[in-house]
Design a protein around this nucleic acid. Structure first.
Lengths: 224, 224
DNA sequence: GATGTTTTTTAAAGACTTTTTACGACTTCA
DNA sequence: TGAAGTCGTAAAAAGTCTTTAAAAAACATC
């Protein structure tokens, strides 16, 4: 994490001394913090350039705050960390809307590390999602594919097929499944269609150096 | 997490009082724990039915333990939690091989919750997609078989045969039954076919060390 | 509507897998 | 001990699936 990249953190909590202290602690670590406690902030969070949300889960407002984080998640996929008291730990039992938690009172170094780790996860990067397989890069934001930095022109179906397979690396897909997932559940047509697309994809992305798509006889194909 | 499902946790740490206490604390929460500290355990972890690994990162062995977790990850995608002292926190800065961490001395409820949350993530579920027999692993999602971490190339029928027998371990199958279950109820062909496939399977998965398929004279074959 | 591009279909060639056949070794039972 | 049945192996034959190329159809653009 370069110090030059400034990440912006939204803290949803009562604005008391402890929280203010936390906020300035994070500011010291290079995060731009904002504190708010009203519920109307969902809009604000979603629409602003927020990178990550901290939600305080305390006695009185536990449920409403969990609900809040759920709503934020629904609108935009933003990493969320709960600040939770030891007593309220069990509230997080079933909640997968929250990515991580720390027990209050907060230890700033621990929280900082947790924030960093969440922001480093590729799926949480603001930068449009990328799939990165060796020297093949699929930029799903741009719908562009490049290999060793050189961009490769794929047709729509080729791109969709590659994207699907690459985002489930290692798994074997039958032609039928590919037809379902890439062409759509209601597509009616022959298996050979898949073969042909695979062939063209291969001819575009595979040189003599690397093989990306493996055929698994009697079953289908796999992206390696 | 139903209480009926028993998850198995491997703790890599010095076996001191604190760790033993932690282990029994987790046992109380319904986890089957095993402790080990030597490095040779990579094999053991990968080959056993372990669901999750705890790695203690302390002063002396920090780097080697991190390396260890990297190696475990390489062999099999298993969730890993670091038990780390406050002073060693920064060692986790760049390490994405570790899924989560807790600061020692451990708070058992917190650790339990972190374990639960990791195991609940779909990508970490044992999910019935993996058959694990000693050092033989059948990954049904990838349609891949590996033995001591080394992947083995099987043909379709070999794979199907192995999958069927391995998922009914200990049971004896007549050739007729195998023909029915693997080849299909309407298959018409001779018994020798089974023998030949068994032979080729054996030659691929059995070394001098382990025998997986046992011949039961006058009846048929049995796995393990 | 003509043109060029993308997608699907078709069919033959090729590669690999599976089955059959045949035979030797081994076990069981009279 | 010999006959009958069972099992393991190798090689050839049969079969199946995949690749390939080329043509037809669908689609988009002007």
């Amino acid at each position: 994490m370069k110090p030059s990249t400034l990440f912006s953190v939204f803290i949803i909590a009562e604005e008391n001394e402890a929280v203010k202290e936390l906020s300035s602690g994070l500011a010291l670590m290079g995060f731009a913090c904002a504190i708010a406690s009203r519920e109307e902030i969902v809009r604000q969070v979603v629409e602003s350039a927020t990178d990550l949300v901290l939600v305080e889960i305390d006695g009185r407002s536990a449920n409403s705050r969990l609900e809040l984080s759920r709503r934020i998640r629904e609108e935009r996929h933003l990493p969320i960390i709960a600040l939770v008291s030891r007593e309220r730990l069990s509230d997080l039992d079933d909640d997968l809307n929250i990515d991580d938690f720390v027990i209050t009172p907060c230890d700033v170094p621990e929280l900082t590390l947790r924030i960093k780790r969440l922001l480093r996860k590729p799926s949480n990067r603001r930068s449009g999602e990328l799939i990165n397989c060796g020297n093949l890069v699929i930029d799903m934001g741009k719908c562009a594919v490049s290999i060793k930095g050189k961009s490769v022109a794929l047709t729509f179906k080729e791109y969709e097929l590659l994207k699907f397979m690459a985002s489930n690396r290692g798994r074997v897909f039958t032609r039928e499944v590919l037809l379902n997932k890439v062409w759509g559940y209601d597509y009616y047509g022959g298996d050979r269609t898949v073969d042909v697309h695979i062939r063209r994809l291969r001819s575009k992305i595979e040189g003599s150096s690397h093989i990306f798509i493996e055929t698994v006889r009697n079953i289908g194909y796999r992206f390696k």
